[in-house]
């Protein structure tokens, strides 16, 4: 196995969406300390939408790379923001990695965020190691995206576990259309 290398996050832009300024400031401080070059903050989903629209309108070096969003927020919450991102017609928006950060820890929320296409979930209270671990994971292990009639988002099968059900992808390869992004 190759030796680990240090990530240089100076060119990264992360958008934090949280209605509570104290928490977004804490997360912003953590991101800056771990080396993230640009940290943006939105106080609700509606404001975040505007920021994403203006920075990710087309692909360039100043795109937002990762969105970290709270779930419960006034005006437009994390769920609506996530749905808007995944329903976007623009590749620079719909494929955005989204990390949900919430104090709710119920199984319902975990499956809800997963089924709406979130990449990761961080349970509040936040810690520096947890935020760093999630960023590392997004950088090192990007997942392909899956589009079906009921879902669009990162492949929900994270691990290569053996399972004893019928694998629909292998059983019906004619139903599976693969897209490979060119360099």
């Amino acid at each position: 196995m190759s030796e680990p290398e240090h990530l240089d996050l100076r060119k990264f832009t992360v958008l934090i969406v949280d209605d509570y300024a104290f928490v977004s400031q804490v997360i912003a401080d953590v991101l800056k300390e771990i080396g993230v070059g640009r940290v943006l903050v939105s106080e609700n989903g509606a404001h975040a939408k505007e920021q994403i629209r203006s920075l990710n309108n087309f692909e360039n070096g100043s795109n937002i790379d990762v969105v970290i969003t709270d779930w419960l927020m006034p005006i437009m919450d994390g769920r609506e923001l996530l749905q808007w991102i995944r329903n976007s017609q623009k590749d620079t928006i719909r494929f955005l990695p989204v990390v949900v950060c919430s104090a709710y820890t119920s199984g319902d929320l975990v499956s809800q965020t997963r089924d709406l296409g979130a990449h990761e979930i961080i349970v509040k209270p936040v810690s520096a190691s947890e935020i760093a671990r999630r960023i590392q994971h997004l950088v090192n292990n990007p997942r392909p995206f899956v589009k079906s009639k009921t879902y669009f988002g990162p492949d929900r099968r994270r691990k290569n576990r053996p399972f004893d059900h019928k694998d629909r992808r292998k059983a019906n390869p004619q139903n599976m259309k693969a897209h490979y992004e060119q360099k």
Binding site: L7, F12, I34, D65, P97, L138, A178
Partner: peptide
């Protein structure tokens, strides 16, 4: 049962100073 799968280039790894094709795990 129809599905599409999108294999995307890893854009974050090169932005973090590593090769997109390198097998090494970047660390903070």
């Amino acid at each position: 049962s129809e599905a599409e799968i999108f294999h995307r280039m890893n854009k974050l790894k090169p932005k973090a100073g590593l090769s997109a094709f390198s097998k090494s795990q970047g660390l903070i």
